[in-house]
Nucleic acid binder design. Sequence first.
DNA 1: CATGAATGAGAGTTCATTCAT
DNA 2: GATGAATGAACTCTCATTCAT
Lengths: 223, 223, 223, 223
Amino acid sequence: MAPKVVDGRKLRAQRRRAATEAKLLFAAESVICRRGFHAATIADIVDEAQVARGTFYQYFDSREAVYRRLIGDFVKLLTSSVERVTERRAPVEDVRTNLLRVLEQLFAQRELAILLFRDALTPDPVLKQLHLDLHQHMHRMVCGLLRRGAQWGILREVEVEGTAWAVIGAIKELLLRRIDELPTLQTDEPVIDGTRITPAVRQSAVDAASVLVDAFYGGLRAP
Amino acid sequence: MAPKVVDGRKLRAQRRRAATEAKLLFAAESVICRRGFHAATIADIVDEAQVARGTFYQYFDSREAVYRRLIGDFVKLLTSSVERVTERRAPVEDVRTNLLRVLEQLFAQRELAILLFRDALTPDPVLKQLHLDLHQHMHRMVCGLLRRGAQWGILREVEVEGTAWAVIGAIKELLLRRIDELPTLQTDEPVIDGTRITPAVRQSAVDAASVLVDAFYGGLRAP
Amino acid sequence: MAPKVVDGRKLRAQRRRAATEAKLLFAAESVICRRGFHAATIADIVDEAQVARGTFYQYFDSREAVYRRLIGDFVKLLTSSVERVTERRAPVEDVRTNLLRVLEQLFAQRELAILLFRDALTPDPVLKQLHLDLHQHMHRMVCGLLRRGAQWGILREVEVEGTAWAVIGAIKELLLRRIDELPTLQTDEPVIDGTRITPAVRQSAVDAASVLVDAFYGGLRAP
Amino acid sequence: MAPKVVDGRKLRAQRRRAATEAKLLFAAESVICRRGFHAATIADIVDEAQVARGTFYQYFDSREAVYRRLIGDFVKLLTSSVERVTERRAPVEDVRTNLLRVLEQLFAQRELAILLFRDALTPDPVLKQLHLDLHQHMHRMVCGLLRRGAQWGILREVEVEGTAWAVIGAIKELLLRRIDELPTLQTDEPVIDGTRITPAVRQSAVDAASVLVDAFYGGLRAP
DNA sequence: CATGAATGAGAGTTCATTCAT
DNA sequence: GATGAATGAACTCTCATTCAT
């Protein structure tokens, strides 16, 4: 009856909820990674998460819902990382740095990246919208980069809109090509900044960024 | 007389077989396009083709088999069109022409192109192999183009292998972006040279090729 | 129009009919032998007989019909061979001779024998009846043998009805046990009396008869 | 308190599982008996058991699996009952007693006995092995009985191996003949010692044993 | 809240049978 | 009479979802 007791109970209950939800999300992600998007079943997920079948439906309305949540979160992460990129006034070296940052995120969560880039064009309208949103966002960002690059004189003039899509496609392809080569994240591996970006992941991102910058920018020069 | 009757009957039977098979292949293609690879069911296909469930299995051993056939045929088409590209000794303007030719094929059969570029990374080993084959083929071709471009002095030197994948990714993305904009082929639409390359398809290919050449080649100059 | 011509045509047509029917019956038998009763399909039979699917239905009303026919013919064959056994007034040695004759038939057509003894208790009422008929027939015969054996003083007195079933069961088991050991009939193998009774078949029958006579009769003595 | 609740729930769940499994096994048994092995479908079984289609697959991996389970259990039962038979040093009267015991089991579970004796020679390799195992076991046992019978002077000398198969065939035939005559076990019928051996079953076994002993042993005399 | 047994619509596939040619 | 393409009912099995405990 005392407010403190109630608060304590509520707090513990909330924590337990959050913990179970996290278990399910993590399990869903790793199952999708292992078995692929379409082959991932509820049974796989609840087995992986070590919870009962019914528990799943206490946290997510349907099979699609957990995918939506997973992707939504990832899109938010990418978007915010990209937001930080564009808000900085870019000196020359910035472009490479920022591209690297995005690629790091993509490589670090490569299961979701695959999901997003390879499988996401499903009939499910919500997933389609999320997919579209991310791509529009990336497109706007790349368009900005291309325009600013031209202004700074480090890029020649191109048809911006189409070229931006070409750049995005190039990123996606390089990502998918490198993904098989990267070792799977070990549970005891040191992670940087609480993210899943390990040294191996960073190196892959550096390589991919180099190729892209080389291909599209002809090599960036400090002014 | 007897042989003639038999021949006549056999001929008609063969034509009927071919017609039904074409109906099924066409239906499968359009169903996959509409509902996506994994959501396309036998029921959808036979409904679309207006034949009975069992008829499907007179022509294809399994659900996978029809996809293998569809993709295999398309890969052969692309491959052969690309073969012709690479065997010609290229003067400067050739690069643009040949790229255009490939893009025309991709846009003309855009349902299959989507299937191949978007969905093909499935657990099915045969499909995976077909997918891999095509990509290896495209990669070899693009590597060759990049190297010859450098020799002819119309391209700066780049890290060839990685850049080739970037180019392929760019082509795929442009393709997928344009596909929704293209109107679906009408049955009474004039087709060119017995292919499905219509004026609209050709225009799309020209646009995409321009963007790519612009982005990667910095504009091609006649020598 | 001349009766002779018509007769000739009719005759040839009849012969062709009979030939095709024989092809189908032979194919059905060998397919059942190879794949088992329940796994034998129409497709198997017409493939084996080298005729079209529809032709099958010109000769038999249904899948069951061909089995009925096959079994019916075999039952008739066995019955008639047994008939000859019982009609003869038996001196002592006769019992062994007659048993041998039945066993020879069973071993010679062992595919059908299996079909009859192992599989025939299907829900199909007609097959069930044929099966029952044959067993009743065999039972009556064996009862007769047992009674006459006792009269002739070469068999001790037993509960005739039950013992007769026991004898039949023993025959069936020995038959099934020997069947796997017998080599399949070769097409160029010398057959005896136009039947499928080869030397190997005859030897098997002799062996089985010996065991049975030994087990049930304690060795037959000439009076 | 918490553990008790959990235990209570787990216990009830386990009981429910066991009950449903029993329902399914019982249904499968009776369906197989009624419709035959090959004609018995999942639909039949779940209809009989009054559960949903999917429920079946929570308990058995496949259609074959339930047959394997059914047969495996029965073979174990028979084997153990036979084990007890052979381990006893047999005075004269023992042979009859032990034979009776086996026959009682066979008659009590006559549906399975039919399944085992009539249908088990299927292409399914596991079923075939189970069938073979049981027959080898029975054969060894009968061989032993025949040899000991000869040693004790209550049986004349015979070719043991072959005769043993004849005996087994005789048992099987008598069993199959009596099965139709026996009334189906009523659910409210008093069962003896928790088994399904009712007075009617016992009487049938006695009759069959008498026929066999009479036929093969010439009547057993107390020493 | 957590549980997991139960559900049933729907998937791919088989095959006896029909019928226009 | 012979053909073989077409048929569709029936089969086994899967899996997202529900609900009593």
